[in-house]
Nucleic acid binder design. Structure first.
Lengths: 207, 207, 207, 207
DNA sequence: AATGAATGAGGGTTCATTCAT
DNA sequence: TATGAATGAACCCTCATTCAT
């Protein structure tokens, strides 16, 4: 979709929209500022009046979503710790949020390389990891292997991303999301039991 | 690590080593032939005597691993279908293989964009997907949602990749791999039960 | 002649002028964009702001002349078919036109190899060939050997080119052009008679 | 035709053959030594043992033909001056000669640019021009315009070249050659009369 | 708030040539 | 005789960025 002919839209908004599309499609480094500007019917000079750099455009696209995402996860995690039964409800809220910001999410997760936000994925995952840590510590009675947690978080996030990649309707996305949640939750639970059994076997070989 | 000062190494080998490192670090497109050559103390002209193109260097790095990988997975999958109990053994073999070709594997999976091998990841995952499909069809009694299979395969592969990304010793890698296998196998099994129960609920709402 | 120091000249015009000179001297392939730019006191980046490619510069140089040339020949041929006596007048007009665009003409005819305009010479000659064909068909009563026509056209055009190659004044050019026209017209007439006599001898050996 | 597999052929001969083909097809500058060598199944190093440079290969291809050509034209011109009636016979001999060395001739005439032999065409034409000069001086009673001679010679040679370009059988080539000779001879004769009439009109305005 | 022009560094690639072996 | 390896300069082109207007 060419943004050039949208009236009542500021150039800044047009650049953000065109940039989102270009970054989503090609990634930060491969995206061409020239082409983003051309898609808006604007020169690169105009761009540099509105944004100090290519990186700043990416930030303008990605930061609001990151902020919302941070607030949302923080709230939902505390909610889930307080009442574990509301998991499915939380899943649905998250899926809807991610679905709404599909492209921005995808950019954050896979298309930031080379930009100042290339570590945003890690920050986000670290935040989730702290929650996973809490959960596993509680279940195991002792802190889990941080590396294992990192991988588990990464897989959880990757699952969401894969759903986003297939360009589904919201209902399909929710259905897949529920299946993947089931997979991940059960996997995590089984892993907890597995670790417990290993630990027991190791500490009391006779048991 | 600068390869310039390794004696008794042909320039071709040095270029492959330096290229592996550069592709591993920066990805195919971002990698600079000039820097690869400089790391070997060689001009770009020398490169073009030994390889017809940048793409050919990537192929020379990646193809042997792809070939071995194809042979290995084919063999191991058939083995596992024949005797499901040998799963752990198979996991270990695969982990060792991937560990040995860490960088090449990572390049194939995440750093090929722009090259003629950028679809190698998909080909590999498709091969695994066929195996998953067989397994789920057998367990469910009917073919599973292909999109769900795609995502499950992707997660399985991503799990391996995440282990590789953390720069562990082989023992640590094997230990993590076994944990992730447990997670994935249990998750898949739970998912099968979940789908079955849903299907039952749908077909006989009174049951 | 260095174009660097011409004031009140846009860079685009300077590049076209420098390009014309370089293409004229060295041909399309051998011409160096770097040198064209340097002659204008400009970097290659500036060139690519003004033209999308080397080929586009050639097109910008050559296309206007081709268009004018097509219009002119079309008009003059029809005029000559209507009134054969105006041949000398037409010759003068064409000679003046070619003289004015000496370098562009030469580029089209001999220095386009490798560019998208390398077939412009053939197109131009084909157009002239159609006219020759009409003329010979009328004179002979049957269509002439197309290969012979091709060669005759090529010689006619080459005659013009050779005049252009010698760097004459306009008067000298017109004088030479008139001599060559005489040569070509008489040669063509004699050839027609020759072909007729051969055909007669062949069809009625006793005649 | 790949020369790689001809046995009992020295590498030098193979290089000359492959070079002839490559120069014929692409011209001196555009021809790639690498490809010439590859076509012979030989490395560039081998080439530089046998020839000091790319230019020397061209010379080795072209010089023998140039020498023969010089001898032949010298002989035939003197013969024709002595007995003008043998023109057709001479035409046939020349056509056969050119036909035999088609590619070499074409290289000399149009594909030498950038080499040390790029002026061979001019030298050859100058030699013919001396003959034309003699002929016109005799016919006109005074030396003709040298520039006009240059152009006439160029056209005469171009006629031959155009025949060569169309890839005809020898018989077709001879037939076309005879037609073009007729064209050129009649044209030249008419031009002589034209010049005479002009000169008369100019020198004695009352006549 | 935006244009149009220009920079300068870097990209992959090709080439004739050289030279130790 | 020939090879295989390497040089170094040139090629066209793309880019994010700058800046006078």
């Amino acid at each position: 979709m060419n943004t050039q002919d949208k009236p009542h839209t500021t150039t800044r908004q047009k650049l953000i929209e065109a940039g989102t599309e270009e970054f989503y499609r090609k990634g930060y480094r491969q995206a061409s500022l020239r082409k983003i500007c051309a898609a808006c019917g604007v020169t690169t000079g105009a761009f540099y009046f509105l944004f100090p750099s290519k990186d700043a455009l990416l930030a303008a696209i990605v930061d609001p979503v990151l902020a919302q995402c941070a607030a949302l996860t923080e709230r939902l995690f505390q909610q889930e710790l307080a009442d574990p039964s509301c998991g499915p409800e939380i899943d649905r809220i998250l899926t809807e949020f991610q679905y709404r910001y599909r492209r921005e999410f995808f950019i954050i997760m896979e298309q930031c390389g080379g930009s100042s936000r290339e570590n945003a994925k890690d920050l986000l995952q670290d935040r989730i990891a702290r929650y996973f840590d809490q959960y596993f510590t509680q279940a195991l009675g002792s802190p889990p292997d941080p590396e294992l947690m990192r991988i588990l978080v990464s897989l959880r996030v990757q699952g969401i991303l894969e759903i986003l990649k297939g360009e589904h309707t919201l209902e399909e996305a929710i259905r897949l999301s529920s299946a993947i949640s089931h997979y991940a939750d059960s996997g995590a639970q089984a892993l907890i039991n597995f670790i417990k059994s290993q630990a027991k076997g190791q500490s009391s070989p006779r048991g």
